[in-house]
């Protein structure tokens, strides 16, 4: 049976997903100038989210109320790297250009803020469900 705690579980899964989004944005910001990695310069990372029913049994019966979210994967952005003319850099090619990560810091800050707002919204949802349960307990007074 779907219960109110399923709603809390769904919001909790969203909190974990938004935390992953913030982590991805933060690592993109941190590595905005990283020219070395396992395979060339750092590439911008993006989080792919997927719906994930908290109660698999109810989902199989097609009556799941609360549907959570899970991180389906973290993919690398294949867009072209930035090229900067800097012949003094040790990673510069013969023409004097350095390949820099395809990270746009202002985009990352916007992503980070949107993930933080989504995190706050899910916190508010958890608080609301908790207050509903608490008020239901008041019924017996």
């Amino acid at each position: 049976m779907p219960t109110l705690t399923d709603a809390i579980d769904a919001s909790a899964s969203a909190l974990a997903a938004e935390r992953t989004r913030i982590e991805a944005a933060v690592s993109n910001l941190a590595n905005a100038e990283s020219t070395r990695g396992p395979d060339g310069p750092y590439r911008r990372r993006e989080v792919v989210l997927a719906a994930d029913p908290t109660n698999q049994f109810d989902a199989a019966l097609g009556r799941a109320g609360a549907v959570g979210v899970r991180v389906a994967g973290i993919v690398e952005d294949d867009s072209p790297l930035k090229q900067r003319f800097q012949p003094s850099h040790p990673d510069a090619n013969e023409a004097g250009f350095v390949a820099l990560p395809n990270v746009n810091p202002s985009e990352e800050v916007v992503d980070m803020l949107s993930a933080a707002r989504a995190y706050q919204a899910n916190l508010a949802a958890i608080g609301l469900v908790r207050d509903l349960i608490r008020q239901s307990l008041e019924l017996s007074r």
């Binding site: 705690t5 809390i8 909790a12 909190l15 974990a16 935390r19 916190l123 958890i126 908790r130």
Partner: peptide
């Protein structure tokens, strides 16, 4: 996670 701990406390 912090939120997991707090949700467990609330529960």
């Amino acid at each position: 996670d912090v939120h997991d701990a707090m949700i467990a406390l609330q529960r």
